[in-house]
């Protein structure tokens, strides 16, 4: 499965840019369009495109499947954990004002950041896991058949 040289060089350039852009979308989501969902999807696409061009073995070396499966659960835990922390501090579940009691607005900022991070991690994990699951199946046709 040797693809075009141009394709491989371009993808190498693109992947790092895409991951950077995903992080920007993730953490700048308060100020501009974007947030955990979009960032997660873009991040996942970066890995998927790498997998498509260079083959599954190379992506598995970068991001092994067991790690992806942990990520899927970790995101939901981060989200729920934020709520539990709020509860332990004596506020309602997912009331971020508790994080900095003297200045609730800042608490909201932190809370949104944490929750969005949780969403982003889960979405990234799920999308990559689904791609791994599909790509690990033996294909029915070879590349030339397209």
């Amino acid at each position: 499965m040797r693809h075009h040289l141009i394709l491989r060089v371009i993808v190498k350039l693109l992947v790092s840019t895409m991951i950077l852009y995903a992080l920007y979308v993730q953490f700048h989501g308060d100020y501009s369009p974007g947030g955990g969902f979009q960032a997660g999807v873009i991040m996942a696409v970066a890995f998927i495109i790498y997998g498509i061009v260079f083959g599954l073995r190379k992506v598995h070396a970068v991001l092994p499947p067991w790690l992806v499966h942990k990520l899927v659960a970790l995101g939901v835990l981060v989200y729920g954990g934020t709520g539990v922390v709020n509860m332990l501090q004596g506020y309602e579940f997912l009331n971020y004002g508790s994080l900095t009691p003297h200045h609730p607005e800042h608490g909201q900022h932190w809370g949104i950041l944490a929750v969005e991070a949780g969403v982003g991690i889960t979405v990234t994990g799920v999308m990559i896991a689904i791609y791994y699951a599909f790509a690990a199946r033996p294909p029915r046709m070879s590349d030339e058949e397209w």
Partner: peptide
């Protein structure tokens, strides 16, 4: 709708897995 889109892709992928 933002959340619905992401749920949509999740269910779509589940359906595609069933197809496989």
């Amino acid at each position: 709708i933002l959340t619905a889109i992401v749920v949509g892709i999740a269910t779509t992928s589940l359906g595609l897995a069933l197809v496989v």
